[in-house]
Simulated assay, not measured.
Amino acid sequence: MSDTTHLLVPWAATSSPGSDQAWQGLALPQLERLIRQLTPLAPDVQEEACFSPPHERALGRALGLGDADGRIAFAALHAAQTGLASAAKPGDGWAFVTPCHWQVRTDHVTLSDPQALDLGEEESRALLALMAPWFAEDGMALHYEQPGRWLASGPLLAQVATASLDRVLQRDVRAWLPPEAAAAPLRRLHSEMQMLLYTHALTDAREARGLAPINAFWVHGSGALPAPLPASQPPQVVESLRGPALREDWATWRSAWQALDAGPVAELAARAAKGQPVQITLCGERGALSWRSAPRSLAQKISSFFGRQRLSQLREQL
Rank of each mutant, 00 (worst) to 15 (best):
L128W: 15
A129Y: 11
F135Y: 05
A136Y: 06
A136F: 13
E137N: 13
D138I: 13
M140Q: 11
L142E: 06
Y144P: 11
Q146L: 10
P147V: 09
P147F: 02
G148H: 14
S153T: 14
P155V: 02
Q159R: 07
A163M: 12
R167Y: 05
R171E: 14
R171G: 00
R171I: 01
V173S: 03
R174E: 08
P178R: 03
P179S: 10
A181M: 09
A181C: 04
A182L: 09
A184V: 06
A184G: 03
P185Q: 00
P185F: 01
L186D: 00
R188S: 12
R188K: 08
L189R: 01
L189F: 00
S191Q: 11
M193D: 00
M195L: 15
M195Q: 11
L197Y: 00
Y198S: 12
T199P: 01
A201I: 07
T203E: 06
L211K: 05
P213D: 06
A216M: 04
F217T: 02
H220D: 10
S222Y: 05
G223A: 04
G223E: 00
L225E: 11
P226F: 11
P228T: 01
A231R: 12
Q233F: 15
Q233Y: 15
Q236E: 13
V237K: 12
V238I: 09
E239R: 15
E239N: 15
S240T: 11
G243I: 13
P244R: 09
P244F: 12
